[in-house]
Nucleic acid binder design. Structure first.
Length: 235
DNA sequence: GCGACAG
DNA sequence: ATCTTGTCGC
């Protein structure tokens, strides 16, 4: 599918769109239930050819078994600008999700949700556009700060937005979560229709064997494989 | 103005 | 994100 005709082209349009959508985010809700299907989504780029490949992998949340996989190829929709990542990644991600035959009960994103300068990171943006339950797991602290969580798996520390509004109280925007003993934490934030406690519990469940949730690992390897296959085919 | 910052 | 070898440690 092509990039939506009304997709923002300029930074000003993107900022206005975030301003419009931020009011629609619901930062509360239950975690996944037994038998729920969780999707992991991720993208890989070929800047030379202006291509992006997205992957959506559906897992059984209880067993972590892969149930279905889908990919989508498209043109890069927006440049990478910190704070505007969603405009670059979402068109292809939406296509990959649409290619699944089953609808996920939850989507785990590679990046942030509420932890965002305007409280509308990738995960929240995707949630509002689709109505799906979402949260984000990022690998770096972005512009936020936290104390170090304890060294054991399951420990966490609040993730704070220090540079919010002048004179405003510091805001808790997510959590730094230790998913593996003695390994760097990941950064969890709410996307849409799920609470922070529930998103944290789900992250720990999905990151049973590795630092990152199984959803992200599967989606990451699938989109890079799809990209290299595509590059090999056209060479 | 400079720096820096999800992927 | 992506460019890239070996290497330390469980």
């Amino acid at each position: 599918m092509p990039i939506p005709a009304d997709w923002p082209t300029t930074e000003a349009e993107a900022l206005a769109e975030q301003e419009r959508l931020r009011a629609l985010v619901d930062p509360h809700g239950p975690g996944p239930a037994d038998g729920d299907l969780v999707a992991g989504v991720d993208v890989a780029y070929d800047d030379e050819r202006d291509l992006v490949v997205a992957a959506a992998v559906l897992l059984d949340h209880s067993t972590l078994e892969v149930v279905e996989e889908a990919t989508a190829v498209g043109r890069i929709a927006f440049p990478y600008i910190p704070g505007l990542l969603a405009f670059r990644e979402l068109p292809a991600v939406l296509d990959a999700l649409a290619a699944l035959t089953r609808k996920p009960d939850l989507v785990v994103c590679d990046g942030y949700g509420l932890a965002h300068p305007r409280r509308l990171g990738l995960a929240s943006h995707l949630g509002v556009l689709t109505g799906l339950r979402t949260y984000g797991v990022a690998k770096t602290p972005f512009t936020f700060t936290s104390s170090a969580p304890g060294p054991e798996r399951g420990a966490w520390a609040p993730l704070m937005d220090t540079q919010a509004g002048e004179g405003q109280a510091e805001e808790v925007v997510g959590r730094a979560v230790r998913t593996r003993n003695g390994v760097k934490p990941v950064f969890v934030s709410v996307g849409h229709r799920i609470g922070l406690e529930e998103a944290t519990a789900s992250t720990l469940h999905l990151a049973r064997d590795y630092r990152q949730p199984e959803t992200t690992r599967r989606a990451d390897s699938l989109c890079r494989r799809a990209l290299t296959d595509l590059q090999r085919a056209s060479a």
